[in-house]
Write a protein that binds this DNA or RNA. Structure first.
Length: 965
DNA sequence: ACCGCCGGGTGCC
DNA sequence: ACCGCCGGGTGCC
């Protein structure tokens, strides 16, 4: 990956000529010697290495060009304890404070122990190169590892292409010559792999970007093998685990009790040997107990972790818990029975609802569109304690919080109350044999899920058992190490943890020796420089877990932080992570990638909602049925509609005759949008914009803005004719064709002055592109006085009213592509006293989350309807409170409809989902559905991708069909 | 280090 | 003897 053509502000020549402090001109005064020792004494080498390799941003691909190699000498071996093996990687660390030589370059092994120094003659140019960031130097000791006084070291220089010359010159000035290969070649193959850079020649063909991306996406897939053993939780857990949760429990337990060597360590003739770095030690490397539980959201990471806490204390035995006999609880497994009840009562209800829907007024028009899915069972695991009011409680301090929670949950045993105040009187369980007295599990989570953890402990731990959970949160939190050490679980947030850590004075959390630390939503600590990351790394614990649905959010770098937390040596030091994994992988090295895969596989469990256990889905979603309800226009509506259609058809006929359909494509779309709007509600149809004289440029511009707005606001999901994908940064040309800005700009750039519109061959240039101004309301507010209904609105309302009669707790999504239609629907909703919320693309983040939260809340009086614009919100949007979906108008893109339905038909949905699509008979909507189906057939047959010419033809055909021509 | 280098002892053969 | 040579002391940066 060469980057020499990239214009960089740093000119290598100037950089080389700039006179940074010539090291030899200033002598180090004697007293600095003492300073140096002091500093050196308080800072470990690995810290020094870590500090030095931070923040340099040297892991970008373009900075990873191999500049050259040379063999050097490590001297002074007898003064240090660090040893190396044949072929072992070593770190080179500048020591500018060294009293004997400001150019000193220290050599350290993987464990951070100093091995020696680079001989001073070579250190001089190296220091200059390293200090000026001209290159990064990596070393491998090829042989001579048993020498007493000095040993050779193969040095490889890595850096930006633009610094190549400067580095070579600097070396030459000192009488060294960088080559491309090491001679002698006797070095490789000792214990493990060849680390001398020769391997990159052997495993030659680098991964393509596509392959890399693919591999990256699949990094966490296929991790399932041999992780299928199940384990029953300890008796204190009253919820029965789903099979995949038992598997996770079994896997987590084995990760905690394992006696295995950490990944890439092998035992060879009495030594422990790291096959990646060739580092060997006599002492067994510390075990890595724990790992990453990367299951998808909703698979029960929290429950599994709770089960782990009570099931795997010391020596694989359950956590000894006191029984509280005086408990007022009659049922020991209330939650279990609740969920069971739910499940059993559930299916009949939903099926009868379906029947009733069939039998509803318009039953003759209502046909079941999709074949129902094979009989599905409701997820057994209860979602949230329905009817609770925990949300919205302001968390002032732990007392308030705990009190609020207790109020909301009527079934808290007395023992638990005392536990929350930390005054648990239960005897401390004897620590059997396990060596350390560590007892407590610390859970760190974002504030947003704190209450969820408390809920889940309540829900899943038997009520007659005392599990001491202390909420370390709020101003009143007790900073007593003793108190914390007496708990079973301490729960806190990243913020509390890091603010305690920041006030160096006292961080009790950092004084406790934890049995287990669990980072919930562990991906939040991906920035190693953030205080909260440092706070988390400094916790002392025997076992460590990261829970995260998205372990890698942005890049491979995110993983570094996670491995660092797990103390997975040597990857917890940035230099080694970069050298062994990050750099090789980003450069497309297959060996590096397979190392990464092996690494991740060893410590991660990940299942998605699509994963299967023994051929069956992990979690069966409730059924999902789709009905199409045909709506008949009133006579008046039909008349008006036909008039609009005829007008539009006249215009389009003319375009067809002239063969200017593509030239006037935006106009054509506008006509279609108007018809579609009319199907919903006559008031939606905006004023006619005539497609005649272009007028002045500013008028033209305005007209174009109107067109693009009309097209894009309608939610028709237009595609860019260049990339054939959904529009990104849409712009409209003067010839009224819509493209992604990057796509059309590329065309203009390559064709320069001759650039023509790909669709109509009109001359275009980049200055004449008009941007989509964003969503805007094109009309004033809808008021009750001017309001009239429409057949479609009537159909919706009759459905909603019937539904409310049958079951007032059922919630519905009312989905449209036209936000103004949503405005119109609000009027009758209010009139009939429905409580509703609304979510559309124009809403600010806070308003959105409030709307979602209100809707998801199941307490009485909460909104039962959400007006949802088709494309609002990302895939993460969770609207499982709804079990009915009304699709008010068909979309061009069926995938958009499916995606929308997925927001309620997803993990956490407990009822069957009923989808009703309203389609106006004998209208453009019916034709759209037809075309949708044809398109879907093409996609299914994998002929979905067409050439632009074909697309043009098929579009013309589509429009003919739509206009009934 | 079974080296190189330094610096004191020494000095025809 | 302002040299050569010998042999002991010594040894990273």
């Amino acid at each position: 990956m060469q980057s020499s053509n990239k214009s960089r502000n740093l000119n290598p020549r100037t950089a080389a000529a700039a006179p940074p402090q010539n090291p030899s001109t200033s002598f180090t005064p004697r007293y600095e010697f003492i300073d140096f020792l002091d500093v050196g004494g308080t800072m470990t080498l690995s810290q020094e290495i870590a500090n030095l390799s931070q923040d340099s941003g040297q892991d970008l691909p373009e900075e990873n060009v191999q500049i050259g190699s040379i063999q050097g000498t490590v001297v002074g071996l007898r003064y240090y304890t660090g040893t190396v093996n044949r072929g072992e990687m070593v770190a080179l660390v500048r020591q500018p404070q060294n009293p004997y030589d400001r150019n000193a370059v220290m050599v350290a092994n993987v464990y951070g122990s100093q091995v020696g120094h680079i001989k001073k003659e070579l250190a001089a140019p190296m220091a200059y190169i390293m200090d000026n960031n001209l290159a990064r130097v990596e070393g491998v000791v090829p042989y001579g590892e048993t020498n007493k006084f000095s040993m050779p070291v193969n040095l490889t220089f890595w850096g930006k292409e633009e610094n190549r010359e400067a580095v070579h010159n600097q070396m030459r000035r000192h009488g060294f010559r960088l080559g491309t290969e090491f001679k002698g070649g006797t070095a490789q193959k000792s214990f493990g792999r060849d680390l001398l850079g020769l391997s990159s020649k052997i495993s030659a063909i680098p991964l393509t970007v596509e392959e890399l991306k693919n591999a990256f996406d699949k990094l966490f897939d296929d991790l399932m093998e041999d992780k299928t053993r199940e384990m029953e939780p300890a008796g204190a857990v009253c919820t029965s685990l789903l099979p995949h949760q038992k598997q996770a429990l079994s896997w987590m337990t084995s990760r905690e009790n394992n006696n295995d060597l950490p990944p890439f360590w092998e035992e060879k003739s009495g030594f422990y040997f790291n096959v990646l770095t060739n580092f060997a030690v006599k002492e067994r490397p510390e075990k890595v107990l724990g790992g990453i539980l990367a299951d998808d959201m909703g698979l029960g990471k929290t429950l599994t972790t709770i089960a782990l806490i009570v099931s795997n204390f010391h020596n694989g035995k359950p956590l000894p818990l006191e029984q509280c006999e005086g408990s007022s609880m009659s049922s020991t497994c209330r939650k279990k029975s609740t969920s069971k009840d739910h499940k059993e009562s559930h299916e009949p209800v939903s099926s009868s609802q379906l029947k009733r829907l069939h039998a509803d007024g318009k039953s003759a028009d209502t046909i079941e569109e999709d074949v129902p899915q094979k009989k599905a069972k409701t997820a057994k695991q209860p979602a949230k304690n329905s009817g609770n009011t925990k949300k919205g409680v302001v968390l002032l301090d732990d007392v308030d919080f705990a009190a609020a929670l207790e109020c909301s949950s009527s079934q808290v045993g007395p023992a638990k109350k005392s536990a929350k105040k930390g005054s648990g009187s239960g005897k401390v369980p004897s620590v059997s044999g396990g060596g350390s007295g560590a007892r407590v599990t610390l859970i760190v989570c974002p504030l947003s899920v704190l209450s969820n953890w408390l809920d889940q402990f309540e829900q899943h731990i038997r009520a007659d058992v005392t599990l001491k959970v202390y909420l370390y949160y709020g101003a009143e939190r007790k900073r007593s190490v003793k108190l914390l050490s007496e708990q079973d679980v301490v729960l806190t947030t990243y913020n509390v943890l890091s603010s305690d850590y920041g006030n160096k004075s006292s961080s009790p959390l950092h004084k406790v020796k934890w049995l287990r630390v669990v980072l919930d939503e562990g991906h939040v600590i991906r920035n190693p420089n953030a205080l909260q990351s440092k706070a988390v790394l400094d916790l002392q614990s025997e076992r460590r877990w990261i829970l995260s649905g998205t372990p890698i959010q942005n890049s491979l770098k995110d993983l570094y932080m996670l491995l660092s937390f797990l103390k997975l040596k040597p990857f917890d030091v940035k230099e080694w992570w970069n050298r062994i994994i990050q750099r090789p992988v980003t450069m497309g090295d297959r060996v590096g990638l397979s190392n990464l895969q092996a690494l991740v596989k060893g410590i991660t469990l990940r299942r998605t909602k699509n994963s299967k256990v023994a051929g069956r889905m992990l979690v069966q979603l409730p059924e999902r049925r789709v009905f199409v309800q045909h709506v008949t226009f009133s006579e008046e509506e039909r008349e008006e509609y036909e008039q609009v259609r005829k007008e539009g058809r006249k215009i389009i006929d003319r375009y067809l005759e002239e063969g200017t359909m593509m030239t006037n494509y935006a106009d054509v779309l506008a006509i279609l949008v108007r018809l579609r709007q009319y199907c919903c509600h006559p008031s939606l149809v905006g004023k006619h914009t005539r497609a005649d004289d272009p007028g002045t440029p500013s008028e033209l511009r305005e007209r174009l803005i109107n067109k693009i707005t009309l097209v894009l606001n309608s939610g028709s999901d237009e595609e860019c004719a260049i990339c054939l994908d959904s529009l990104r940064q849409p712009v409209i040309t003067y010839c009224a064709h819509v493209y992604c800005r990057p796509c059309i700009c590329e065309v203009i750039q390559s064709e320069k002055e001759q650039a023509r519109c790909p669709l109509c061959r009109a001359q275009i240039n980049s200055k004449e592109l008009v941007e989509y101004p964003g969503e805007e309301m094109e009309a004033g507010p809808v008021t009750q006085e001017h309001w009239r209904s429409s057949s479609k609105v009537d159909a919706l309302m009759s459905n909603l009213l019937k539904l409310r009669n049958e079951d007032p707790t059922v919630k519905s999504l009312v989905v449209s592509q036209f936000t103004r239609f949503m405005d119109l629907i609000e009027v009758p909703l209010r009139e009939y006293g429905f409580s509703f919320t609304r979510l559309d693309g124009s809403m600010a983040q806070t308003a959105r989350s409030k709307a979602i939260q209100d809707f998801q809340d199941s307490s009485p009086g909460s909104p039962t309807i959400m007006l949802l614009s088709l494309k609002a919100g990302g895939v993460g949007l969770n609207l499982t409170a709804a079990s009915h979906v009304y699709m008010m108008d068909p979309a061009w893109n069926p995938a958009a409809e499916d995606q929308c339905v997925d927001r309620c038909h997803r993990l956490g949905q407990t009822r069957d989902v009923v989808i009703t699509k309203f389609i106006v008979k004998d209208s453009v909507e019916e034709k759209m559905v037809m075309i949708q189906k044809k398109k879907q057939e093409l996609v299914d047959k994998a002929f979905g991708v067409k050439k632009p010419q074909d697309r043009k033809q098929s579009r013309t055909d589509e429009i003919r069909a739509l206009m009934e021509i």
